[in-house]
């Protein structure tokens, strides 16, 4: 049991239970899961695509995938994490479709003033993204987060970020080189 499952109030079924009920065709379970997860999923996907229609379609498809695939879902993982993976893939599918029609629906990664994470109101949990990644230029970070952290392919990353595949590859190798140097300098 992880922290999220534990936190849910007593009396409310946890995600795994609800997924089990969905597998039996219980639509109320889908409704509850939607109310629990649609907000953050929409917010996170919106952060990756400026077009709200594209995001909404991806959210809908992710929940439908959960509904239809509930029987195959294994309760070992966390539902939220699974939903995120599916949602992100569906978003990429939708962006790809838009791009075929010549519409660009990607945010441009812009240079930014670094935020000092010490000034954040909450301590950040240890994530798969190490703080050393923050030393890279934003566009390199974006590629690294998409590939190394989210586990997207080069093609998927290219679609999500709205840049050519070649650019994804060159940025990846540049980022790796910089990280390697940073790590070896840190060891000395």
């Amino acid at each position: 049991m992880n922290s999220v499952t534990r936190e849910i109030r007593t009396g409310e079924p946890d995600d795994a239970t609800l997924v089990g009920r969905m597998a039996d065709g219980n639509r109320e379970a889908l409704d509850l899961l939607y109310r629990r997860h649609a907000g953050w999923l929409t917010a996170r996907l919106q952060r990756r695509c400026p077009d709200p229609d594209v995001v909404d379609t991806a959210v809908q498809e992710a929940f439908l995938a959960a509904w239809r695939g509930a029987g195959r879902w294994k309760p070992s993982g966390e539902f939220g994490a699974w939903l995120w993976t599916v949602g992100l893939r569906r978003l990429i599918d939708q962006i790809r479709r838009q791009q075929r029609h010549g519409r660009d629906v990607s945010w441009e990664v812009v240079g930014s003033e670094p935020v000092d994470s010490g000034e954040l109101p909450l301590a950040l949990t240890d994530t798969r993204v190490g703080s050393e990644l923050s030393r890279l230029a934003p566009e390199l970070q974006a590629v690294m987060v998409a590939t190394a952290v989210e586990g997207l392919s080069t093609g998927e990353t290219a679609i999500l970020l709205g840049i050519p595949r070649g650019t994804v590859k060159s940025r990846m190798s540049r980022a790796r080189k910089l990280l390697r140097t940073a790590i070896s300098e840190g060891e000395q």
């Binding site: 922290s3 999220v4 953050w40 996170r44 952060r47 939220g80 995120w84 990664v109 930014s112 670094p114 935020v115 994470s117 954040l120 909450l122 301590a123 950040l124 949990t125 994530t127 798969r128 993204v129 703080s131 990644l133 923050s134 890279l136 934003p138 970070q141 974006a142 690294m144 987060v145 952290v149």
Partner: peptide, 14 residues
């Protein structure tokens, strides 16, 4: 930046 954005997200969804 994207790395911090991701770390914040992971913190929030936990």
């Amino acid at each position: 930046d994207p790395a911090l954005e991701y770390r914040i997200e992971e913190t929030l969804v936990s």
